[in-house]
Design a protein around this nucleic acid. Structure first.
Lengths: 204, 204
DNA sequence: CCGTTTCGGAACGGGCACGTATCGATGAGT
DNA sequence: ACTCATCGATACGTGCCCGTTCCGAAACGG
């Protein structure tokens, strides 16, 4: 009893219209995202997710009306701040740190982005869910890093390359698997920042 | 008669095991690539292609055994050198020219790349067809531009940023639609090259 | 000019996945 | 201890698409 209450008293008391625990729900989300990474969005089936989590298809449809809504919920639940809260004091080190985080970040989420890349253009809800889960938080964090650098006077506010830096890092991250067939590891992306981004900004 | 012979006498005389003309074949290819851009790879159906080109499904299956093989053939047929043969004499202008070409290039082929992005990880034949049709030719042309610049002494051969330039341009090209929701037009990508790439290489 | 071949059209069998409905079992709340 | 909602399992109806097959019609080729 006491051990079960460790989940948090109000967690259960709070309006849970379902008997599924949060952990159980997260199993469904992990399963569907894993299958999307492996087989692509279209090839993922509710039946497959139900089978791999040993739950009933009916259960999934009771909680989420349809497959896109289910996937969107999974994305929203996996929303995490990954390289947020970086603040070393200098722009160069902040960017290096962000690059390192992005490199570690890359492997799984790049796959997810790739697999959802086209599905997202069809379903608006899926689109916003993906943006809010994987894209906007990181881009915003990056922009904040840059803004702090500008405020410290490390780089002029109207530096023409500033606007392109998020697209550059995101782009290179996603381009390497296509061009070289390897995932973009931290070493690769840090080296890129030091070789291309920092010199452009006049740092180092 | 004479006007029909304008197709080329040997074009017909050459071993065409099929009654389909090259132009007719290209209609099929254009149709399937258009549908892929519009609906994604998985959603494309042989029935849809047959209907939109007013041919029989049987005809498609007579020429190509299966859907991936058909799409791969379409990709191989659409293989074109886009920004090849650029040679202005200076590295900076070559890169500007390549950027302009890439910007015009982008709209349709970025969509195709996006739509095929995941399907390609499943089917090796599709993968090589896509690489040979859309990726390798452009990357090779870009590398040649850079190599000529090195040979002219405009940039040191061991410049650390050199290796990243193809990935940068490709990456930024594909990143903008995701981050900003607009296609990367020539103006955008040329501005990027001038703001970020050229300064990094020490070219003003 | 006539046989042969491939064309376009249509129907078919098979499989698969969506989303629904039914049914006993189980666990929570009173 | 009893009730009731939700669980997992399963079966079902529907629609879609693959790949095949059959059928005239039309176009080559000799």
């Amino acid at each position: 009893m006491t051990s079960q209450a460790a989940d948090g008293p109000d967690t259960v008391a709070a309006s849970r219209r379902s008997k599924l625990t949060r952990e159980r729900e997260q199993e469904f989300f992990d399963a569907v995202l894993d299958q999307i990474r492996a087989c692509g969005y279209d090839s993922v089936t509710m039946e497959g997710v139900a089978a791999s989590t040993r739950c009933s298809k009916a259960t999934l449809y009771r909680q989420w009306r349809t497959k896109p809504q289910f996937v969107a919920a999974a994305l929203r639940a996996s929303r995490r701040t990954r390289f947020d809260g970086i603040d070393t004091g200098t722009l160069a080190d902040d960017l290096r740190e962000a690059a390192r985080a992005a490199g570690a970040w890359s492997a799984k989420d790049t796959r997810l982005l790739q697999a959802l890349g086209h599905a997202v253009t069809q379903d608006p809800e899926l689109r916003t869910a993906l943006r809010e889960a994987l894209i906007d938080p990181e881009i915003d964090a990056l922009k904040q890093i840059l803004r702090r650098g500008v405020e410290r006077g490390e780089v002029p506010a109207d530096h023409p390359a500033l606007d392109y830096i998020p697209a550059q890092i995101f782009g290179v991250l996603r381009a390497r698997p296509v061009l070289e067939g390897k995932d973009a590891d931290p070493e690769y992306i840090v080296r890129f920042v030091e070789a291309a981004v920092l010199p452009t900004l006049g740092l180092t």
